[in-house]
Each structure stands twice: as C-alpha cells, then as structure tokens.
Amino acid sequence: MEIPRSSSMALLLLSIVVLPNFFCVCSAIESPQYSVVHSESDFEIRLYRLTPWMSAPVKDISFEKATKNGFHRLFQYIQGANLNFSRIAMTAPVLTSIVPGAGPLHSSAYFVRFYVPTKFQSTPPTPLPELNLKSYTWDSHYIAVRKFSGFARDTNIVKEAEKLASSLSRSPWANSTSAESSYAYSIAQYNSPFRFIGRVNEVWVDVNASGVDGYKSSAIATY
C-alpha cells in the first residue's frame, strides 16, 4: 500500500527532529572516567579515577531480581526521593556487584550502584531513609573488563565472568585478581531494559597492578 505523500513528509520531519534529539540524549549520559592501560581482543584493563556511587544493598538468590529491586530504589532516589527533593540525571552504567554466599540459605548478596553525576559529586543529596541506600566512593583502581551483548541474565553472567577469568589467566595479568575486593565480580549494564538491539554489558573484576611490569600498585575499592 502506498503511503500518502503528506504522511511520508510527516515521517521525514519526525526523523529529522526526533532522532537527532534521541541520540543527543543517549550520548549525553554521564559515565565514570577511565583510561585503558592494556587491551586484548576479548578484554581490557581500565584505570578508573576516584568515583562516587550511590549503592543499594540487596539480598536475593537471583541477580536479575536483585538488580531490579536495587535499581527501583535508586530510581526513586534520582526522581526526588531525597532530603533535597533533587532530581538527578540518569547515568551509566548501572552496576551490580555480586558477593557470593553472603546471604541467608547460602544465597548471594548484591550491591546495585548508581554513578553520581558531576553536578552532585561534592554533596550528593541524602536519600530518604526507607530506601536503604548508602553513599560510597571508591579510590582510583584497575578493573579488568569483558564486553558482552544481549541481556544480562542469571543464566549467562557466570559464564561471562568465567570467560574473563580464563582470558586473564593467559595474559600478563594472570593471578592479579584482587584479594582485597569484597565481591567476586560486577555486571555493568548500559542500556534501558526497553532496548532490544545493540545492547552493551560488561563484566568487571578488580585487579591489582602490583607485580605487573610497567604498572604501579593501586588501591582497590572495598565496602
């Protein structure tokens, strides 16, 4: 069926006006700053600067449920559920750190984190007490990162973490996983749950640069 010329013109105008604005909004989302210090085909080592986060502790047996629970509380916080009634811009990634065996019935504990944007880093608004959120700042440190696509699920995050561990074992960073970190690994998610194509996720593992040629020792983030 042929689309009327008036409808075609309307669609063209919509694409000219809306799509650039959409991409501007996406590219404007703030993320923590880092430098890539080592890169291979399937992973890289990043040096992150000192970064402030707002964290939601969650106890659950499911990564997916824990992430949803924690993010729901963080989303309320950035929408104004804080003592300043401040609305805070969304940032990326949403980071879920996994702490194995820390909860009841041998379940896991999680920390779901929101990166605090520059505007609020000096004095982050205090969250409402019922949200049970904690302000946290990690020191500058090294992180091993592996990217993967699709959705981060209970069924695939362990496999992705194992692939990163395998890659590290064959690199100069073998045996560099930090014993000081209080969590096994983290999953960084960069996209809205309503995006189905071109999704970007990452596995993060804290690493210690001491003993690796060409790198200085770095403080590792701990809770």
Results as ranks from 00 to 15, higher is better:
Ile3Phe: 09
Leu164Cys: 07
Leu47Pro: 03
Glu130Val: 08
Asp206Ser: 15
Glu30Val: 04
Phe23Glu: 00
Ser135Lys: 12
Phe85Gln: 14
Val99Cys: 09
His72Arg: 14
Ser62Glu: 12
Leu133Met: 08
Leu128Ala: 10
Ser186Gln: 06
Ala161Gly: 10
Leu164Met: 01
Ser149Thr: 14
Pro127Val: 01
Val207Cys: 02
Ala144His: 11
Leu14Ile: 12
Gln33Pro: 02
Thr51Gly: 03
Leu168Arg: 01
Ser107Glu: 09
Phe85Lys: 14
Val203Phe: 07
Ser41Thr: 09
Arg87Ala: 06
Ser218Tyr: 01
Leu168Ser: 02
Lys59Tyr: 05
Thr155Arg: 06
Tyr34Leu: 05
Glu160Ala: 02
Thr67Ala: 14
Ala92Asp: 04
Ala221Arg: 11
Ser181Gln: 09
Glu2Tyr: 05
Glu180Asn: 13
Ile3Gly: 02
Pro52Ser: 14
Thr118Lys: 12
Lys134Ala: 09
Val116Ile: 15
Ser176Met: 00
Thr51Asp: 06
Leu50Glu: 13
Phe151Gly: 00
Leu13Met: 13
Asn69Leu: 06
Lys65Val: 05
Phe151Ser: 12
Glu130Ser: 12
Val200Leu: 14
Glu162Arg: 02
Phe71Met: 11
His141Gly: 13
Ala92Met: 10
His38Glu: 11
Ala209Trp: 02
Val25Met: 10
Ser35Ala: 13
Tyr110Trp: 09
Glu202Asp: 11
Ile61Pro: 03
Ser107Lys: 05
Gly198Thr: 04
Val18Ala: 08
Pro57Asn: 11
Ile157Gln: 08
Phe194Gly: 05
Glu64Gly: 07
Leu11Phe: 14
Ile220Lys: 01
Ala219Val: 13
Ser108Tyr: 05
Ile143Asp: 01
Pro127Asn: 05
Tyr77Ile: 08
Gln33Val: 09
Lys159Gln: 12
Ser186Asn: 09
Gln79Val: 00
Arg199Ala: 10
Arg5Met: 07
His141Asn: 14
Ala109Phe: 03
Ala102Thr: 15
Asn82Gly: 01
Ser176Phe: 00
Met90Thr: 08
Tyr215Ala: 02
Tyr183Phe: 15
Ser35Thr: 09
Leu105Phe: 14
Asp60His: 15
Leu11Met: 13
Tyr142Phe: 15
Met90Cys: 04
Asp154Thr: 03
Leu47Ser: 13
Ser86Ala: 15
Ser27Gly: 01
Tyr110Asp: 04
Asp213Gln: 14
Lys147Phe: 08
Trp173Tyr: 06
Arg199Asp: 13
Val36Gln: 10
Asn175Thr: 02
Ile78Gly: 02
Tyr215Thr: 04
Thr118Gly: 06
Tyr115Asp: 01
Asp139Arg: 13
Leu83Gly: 02
Leu13Thr: 07
Pro193Leu: 06
